[in-house]
Design a protein around this nucleic acid. Sequence first.
DNA 1: CGTCCCGTTGATCCCTATCAAATGTAGTGG
DNA 2: CCACTACATTTGATAGGGATCAACGGGACG
Lengths: 250, 250
Amino acid sequence: MSTSIPRSLVKNLDLFRAVPDKDLDTVLAIAQPMRLNAGDAVFQQGQNAEHFFILLHGHLKVMQTTSEGEQVMVRYVIPGEVFGIAKAMRRPTYPATCLAVEESIVLGWPSTEWDHFMTGNLQFAANALQTVGQRLQDAHARIQELSTEEVEQRVARCILRLVDSSGEKTEEGVSINFPITRQEIAEMTGTTLHTVSRLLSAWKDRGLVNTGRKRVTVLKVDDLIRLAEGGQAGAGQDASARRRNPVQPL
Amino acid sequence: MSTSIPRSLVKNLDLFRAVPDKDLDTVLAIAQPMRLNAGDAVFQQGQNAEHFFILLHGHLKVMQTTSEGEQVMVRYVIPGEVFGIAKAMRRPTYPATCLAVEESIVLGWPSTEWDHFMTGNLQFAANALQTVGQRLQDAHARIQELSTEEVEQRVARCILRLVDSSGEKTEEGVSINFPITRQEIAEMTGTTLHTVSRLLSAWKDRGLVNTGRKRVTVLKVDDLIRLAEGGQAGAGQDASARRRNPVQPL
DNA sequence: CGTCCCGTTGATCCCTATCAAATGTAGTGG
DNA sequence: CCACTACATTTGATAGGGATCAACGGGACG
């Protein structure tokens, strides 16, 4: 089984960067590959965190269901990322559900192996800390946006981020290279599918984007950036918009 | 200098748990204690992250200023917590500003020492990962709340959390044992000081809390919990409130 | 070719941000 | 000890962004 996973597959992943080749071989020897179809779950919120994973191909979404039954998107997992590392943070169970949004391939290890990896390589531990640190930053950025920005800005930022991480150049612009619904965009931005639909329609009318069923393509990135930053895109408006908790001028 | 810092001060901190005594002594030998008055900054957003710290006494607030000049509270630091560990996540600068909200005492180390601590103790690395992991969870909880709950619930939860971590039993109830303004509560919950004021006033009228200048005391914890969970507190209402992104019933 | 899903679009309502002032409270210097 | 000042808090009035409610249209897939 280990012979089927080339070392090159993991060699350039953030987590394993600077880990010596011989250790990588050990790592790969116990890795368990698996293929997922769209809609398949890698793990469910509340399950025992018995494995951690790396996404090799495809796209996954990680989402939490609140006690009231609402869905909130935690993040999309893109190829090369680790996920399901709850156990590494000493959480016994997965805090969220992870689903494939398209055909995907992941590599899994038993959570018990985590400590082995850490012990063997200080580098590995530092990498893990950096990864989680980055996610913490991302989460704070989102909190900031939810706290201070309006829906249009948040949705614009969300689209831009997706285009950044998973954009694919096409004849007309850059499109998000995996299927995504209005509902999902709403769950990422703290709004409703209705509002997202209205926004995308408006942007489409203005020629900023092109949309289809589960597809979004950005035509005018600059204008979208202007929207994300609070401008009115198209007309260069006065930037002193409404702000929630302004710092007092001296 | 090291003689002035008793080992017991750090021995029971999460970060140093399970670190052998002799290592602790080394750690303490290079620790730099400092005293802060209310309003003093430990570090400013954007500064080079040259130190990391542990709070020994008092209370600090960590806040970000957005590009538009709004303030968002990241968290309050309570005694025993590490903070300013940007460098450990390979961030060159502090992503936020840290201010004392009352007289406080912190212990600081040069960021360069972090790697030493990590190398010496696998335990230390694991503890750090857990700490950051916990913060990531907290951040996601906040995202969930900002995305799906109404202001009253969020503020109720915020107060409950503060009471939990920094509550002090008094004759009439439990009070938050450090000075906190309506503005600050607003910055934590993504609303405005006006709305927070109105909510606290309403709660006070109903006998749930008592308030003063920079002071909040909770009188009826249970009722506040009910509010936080979306109930109407006092009248046992039907729990099927409005929900943003409900999971489809099968 | 019917049946899910997904997306679009009106109409309406209400929570809560904003705008605007007044009142209270701690701290300070004379 | 009190006037003075800076900041915190309270409260009213108003408006508006978006959630909700309600249908309908359209593409994909079995």
